[in-house]
């Protein structure tokens, strides 16, 4: 699983004025059915090894359906549908804001799913954007670095700890490069909305010469191997699935608040196999009934009870608010502030 870098051309395509080159395909696999009755074309930001068990299970339930699965980055996915008008039956993305923009700007088909009633209100927007996973942004700390010491449990504690002993953490903390990572940008902007502590934290991390990463995988690896003392805003679901095979780090859900990203599936307007696309949406929305798939893919299904159990978990809400940080001026200002805080050269 990855959160590929947000292409530098994001601003360009949001302005809609620049004709763009074709989107980049990172991986592609065809699950051929024999005999083949129809094809379901999926464009997704989730890696093949993550989605493979889900696709095989879905194909088993729908004999005669071939699946053409294309992996790309969040911004490339946006570009493919928004600018290129590429024909796909389904688009699966971790970029809630971009999926919201697709819905708001009229690029998606509506589907009143019969299984929607079982889901919390915040999981579906406009009958067009369907969330099927809930993935928190967490703090990772290195076992080698902290040992038996208590790790910080909220942002204020984290800031205090970093200020107390800057020499220990110098160059040994990591976070997303929000200029390159769609997920990083999303959680950073949500952080900035939720807490004043965010900018202080960025300031402190910048002074400590924080390392910037494009992807969760590398951060987890560096924390596990002790190169980093801690990594801030790592994708929790990925860290949890890595924890089963890798030791050397702890996953900490902050007690002040935890942003929970929702992975979403949408049906683009150009869908040619709407029936299969809707079946796949229903299948994904019922992921919580298939613990085997949850375990195999490492994608945590929607579970409203987790939010009731832990009040600090906050699902990122769909709605026009998500469009705000896609605004070109807003984004430019945010990135400038972020660079001023974090990239102190």
């Amino acid at each position: 699983m990855r959160f590929p870098c947000l292409a530098a051309s994001l601003i360009a395509f949001l302005s809609l004025s620049v004709a763009s080159a074709a989107f980049e395909i990172e991986d592609q696999r065809l699950y051929t059915a024999d005999p083949e009755r129809s094809v379901l074309k999926i464009i997704s930001t989730a890696d093949l090894d993550v989605f493979d068990p889900i696709l095989i299970a879905f194909q088993a339930e729908n004999p005669g359906l071939s699946i053409d699965y294309t992996v790309t980055g969040t911004s490339d996915l946006m570009k493919a549908i928004y600018v290129d008008g590429a024909q796909f039956d389904l688009a699966i993305s971790s970029a809630m804001d971009l999926q919201t923009k697709l819905a708001n700007d009229g690029f998606l088909s509506s589907y009143a799913s019969p299984v929607a009633a079982d889901l919390p209100d915040w999981a579906i927007w406009r009958d067009q954007v369907f969330a099927f996973t809930q993935e928190p942004a967490v703090l990772l700390v290195s076992e080698a670095f902290f040992g038996d010491d208590p790790a910080p449990t909220n942002r204020d504690e984290l800031i205090a700890l970093l200020r107390e002993s800057p020499e220990r953490f110098q160059g040994r903390i990591g976070t997303y490069d929000v200029r390159r990572s769609g997920f990083g940008y999303l959680v950073a902007t949500q952080d900035s909305r939720n807490s004043e502590a965010f900018w202080r934290l960025m300031e402190v991390m910048g002074r400590l010469d924080a390392k910037l990463y494009c992807c969760s995988g590398e951060m987890i690896r560096d924390v596990a191997e002790g190169r980093l003392a801690l990594a801030y805003n790592v994708l929790g679901s990925y860290a949890a699935s890595q924890k089963t095979t890798t030791d050397g780090f702890r996953i900490i859900e902050m007690t002040d608040f935890v942003n929970v990203m929702l992975r979403t599936v949408v049906i683009p307007q150009g869908s040619e196999n709407v029936e299969a696309a809707q079946a796949m949406v229903d299948f994904l929305l019922q992921l919580n009934e298939r613990p085997d798939l949850v375990a195999a893919s490492g994608l945590p299904a929607i579970d409203a009870s987790k939010f009731q159990a832990n009040a600090s978990l906050r699902p990122i809400r769909f709605g026009p608010g998500l469009l705000v940080f896609l605004d070109q001026l807003k984004r430019r200002n945010f990135l400038r502030n972020w660079e001023n805080s974090l990239v102190q050269e």
Partner: peptide
């Protein structure tokens, strides 16, 4: 220049799920 306030667009979703 403009610092688009988050609430300016999010307030429009208080009643319904209309496009903005």
């Amino acid at each position: 220049t403009l610092e688009l306030p988050y609430s300016a667009l999010s307030m429009l979703s208080t009643i319904n799920e209309d496009r903005v």
